[in-house]
Write a protein that binds this DNA or RNA. Structure first.
Length: 538
RNA sequence: AGCGGGGUAGGGUAGUUAGGAGAUCCCGUCGGGCUCAUAACCCGGAGACCGGUGGUUCGAAUCCACCCUCCGCUACCA
């Protein structure tokens, strides 16, 4: 999606649910979002980048009980953990909030009230599992029993091990509480529903215009084509945002979580009303980065809610594929998981950022393996990129110490221009693999250029040869400069290092794409070549 | 069961939206080169009936039909 250059952009990244540590699956969303933002800024856009911790819901309450602490404590612990991870990984949010903030309570209350006022919310009595031992109502996933149809063990609202039929919760026989293992009973209970079904037509035309990745639209369309069911938006919990006018109900976590996008914008722009440009007046482009697992919530539920409460709608939803490990699904219980902090204790964050986008295209599933990771690092980062920087700099330092005299060849500028166009194109398509492939092709060209021109021979051929070798070096340095600018969004730390090695003094993070065509200055002192990437020995 | 996404050389992967020359790239493999460089880098070769069958077309990996096969999803789970 091409956004007009003068339009402000709000990029959001899905809210991590803070009841556990960050694993590399999470990063498939945050890292590309950060790359996207950095690249948009290089292209000249005015961008705000926000996210925050999703703090409510039953799992956090249970987690707190299990640890004998308050939900606040659980939230605080993992909230800080995620902030730290993002800092280390250079996922650089303008604002990272959390959904239990005062402003999110207020904003949620306003939105829900608006929905009530406009008659999109109604009361209904439902049968719900209740555990006498725990003394609480049980969400579907915490109820287990036998399937009405085939007698197999059924969980929640589905007979997942037997006939696969969808079950009404009350159709489960001999329900048990999964938390304590004791018998549960079904009780009648008054809940509130959001009339999602009335938005079917709106959603259908909305999805036709929605930007972002195809997987998000297609998946959402399927739901709209089928029958949309109204959504129960209240829960019997203490922890959460109180449902207006009720003492014992909170809103369902998927109501107040996305509203966080709005309240974080408010918090970022502190009270001056500027948030309305983004969420009320349609003056900005809103781009959501999410994982494919929450497409439903972002492409169906969320737009309907915004529409109902009269807010601006997202312009694009970018959904990344899930991460697998060695061909297997992520599973904390089976230990098939890679924790981000453990990974970062051993390897540089930039190599992980690179791998996550280089390994597979954004919407497809990414199968992590240590083999493919070390192969990419060794062959591409060390062999192609690191080696190019090192060979050019070593040669240049030894023979010139500064950037030599000479003009940039047409061929070099033309190649840079071609790759720049590919990169911009990739950004607009949300294809981050194409982005790194294009830049690496530029580095590849650098190696071929350097080899073809043989400066190590030229340098031995008198004054004229020395001048020609200098020209080659200057051109090679120009290519390095270009690679550096284009790859900074992917590997911000390493490219900053490289930037200084080639003698640049400006801030590579804020340098714009226009700099690509500015010749590197002759006479500029070159830094000491230091290996950018280390080989991974396997 | 329905729906969604895949099946392309030994492994991985691009290309399929808008059908066109010898089907991309990486690893591995074989041969050669270079020696500035982190045993890196450069050049060349071998290796694919693009899951199957049938169809549309001057022309299909790309479009259509049917089939085989793998994976995921089906609402409160990144």
């Amino acid at each position: 999606m091409k956004i007009p250059i003068d339009k402000p952009v709000l990029v959001t990244s899905a809210l991590p649910y803070v009841n556990g540590e960050c694993h590399i699956g999470h990063l498939r969303t945050y890292v590309p979002a950060d790359i996207y933002v950095r690249m948009l800024r290089k292209m000249g856009y005015n961008v705000r980048f926000i996210s925050g911790s999703d703090t409510h819901g039953t799992p956090i309450v249970l987690s707190a009980e299990a640890q004998g602490i308050t939900p606040e404590k659980v939230v605080e612990k993992y909230h800080e953990h995620f902030k730290q991870v993002f800092k280390t990984l250079k996922v650089d949010f303008d604002y990272y909030g959390q959904t239990d903030s005062e402003s999110n309570h207020v904003r949620t209350d306003k939105i829900v009230n608006k929905l009530i006022e406009k008659d999109y919310v109604y009361k209904k009595v439902v049968k719900q599992a209740y555990c006498n031992t725990c003394g609480r109502f049980l969400p579907d996933r915490y109820v287990e029993g036998k399937c009405l149809h085939c007698g197999a063990i059924a969980r929640g609202d589905e007979c997942d091990q037997g006939c696969g039929k969808h079950l009404e919760p009350s159709e489960i026989i001999e329900p048990k509480c999964k938390i304590c293992g004791n018998d549960a009973v079904f009780k009648e209970q008054e809940q509130f529903f959001f009339a999602l079904s009335t938005f079917a037509e709106f959603l259908s035309s909305y999805l036709d215009k929605l930007g972002g990745t195809l997987n998000a639209r297609n998946y959402a369309r399927e739901w709209v084509k089928k029958e949309l069911l109204d959504w129960c938006i209240t829960r019997n919990l203490e922890w959460g945002v109180k449902f207006p006018g009720s003492e014992d109900l909170v809103v369902y976590v998927w109501v107040d979580a996305p509203i966080g996008y709005i309240s974080f914008t408010e918090e970022l722009l502190k009270g001056n009303g500027d948030w309305k440009k983004y969420w009320k007046d349609d003056e900005a482009a809103i781009v959501h980065f999410i994982g494919t697992d929450i497409i439903y919530h972002h492409c169906i539920f969320w737009p309907a809610m915004l529409k109902g409460a009269e807010y601006s709608l997202p312009d694009a939803v970018v959904a990344s594929g899930m991460v697998k490990i060695n061909g297997e699904k992520f599973s904390k219980s089976r230990g098939n998981v890679i924790w981000t902090t453990e990974f970062l204790e051993r390897f540089h964050p930039d190599t992980l950022r690179y791998y996550l986008v280089a390994q597979s295209s954004h919407t497809k599933e990414l199968d992590f393996s240590w083999d493919s990771y070390s192969m990419r690092v060794n062959n591409e980062l060390v062999g192609v990129l690191g080696n190019l920087v090192h060979r050019v700099l070593t040669f240049a330092r030894k023979n010139y110490a500064v950037v030599p005299e000479g003009d940039i060849e047409k061929e070099v500028f033309a190649t840079i221009e071609t790759r720049r166009a590919e990169v911009v194109n990739a950004v607009e398509e949300y294809e981050f693999k194409k982005l790194v492939d294009a830049v690496m092709a530029l580095a590849d060209f650098g190696n071929r250029f350097f080899h073809r021109e043989e400066p190590w021979h030229l340098i031995k051929q008198g004054e004229e040869g020395r001048a020609r070798a200098g020209l080659v070096i200057k051109n090679a340095l120009q290519l390095l400069k270009a690679v550096c600018i284009l790859l900074e969004p992917v590997m911000p730390e390493k490219m900053e290092e490289m930037w200084h090695q080639i003698g640049m003094e400006s801030d590579v993070h804020s340098v714009k794409l226009d700099e690509l065509m500015v010749p590197i200055e002759s006479g500029q002192a070159l830094g000491k070549p230091k290996m950018l990437f280390k080989r991974i020995e396997t």
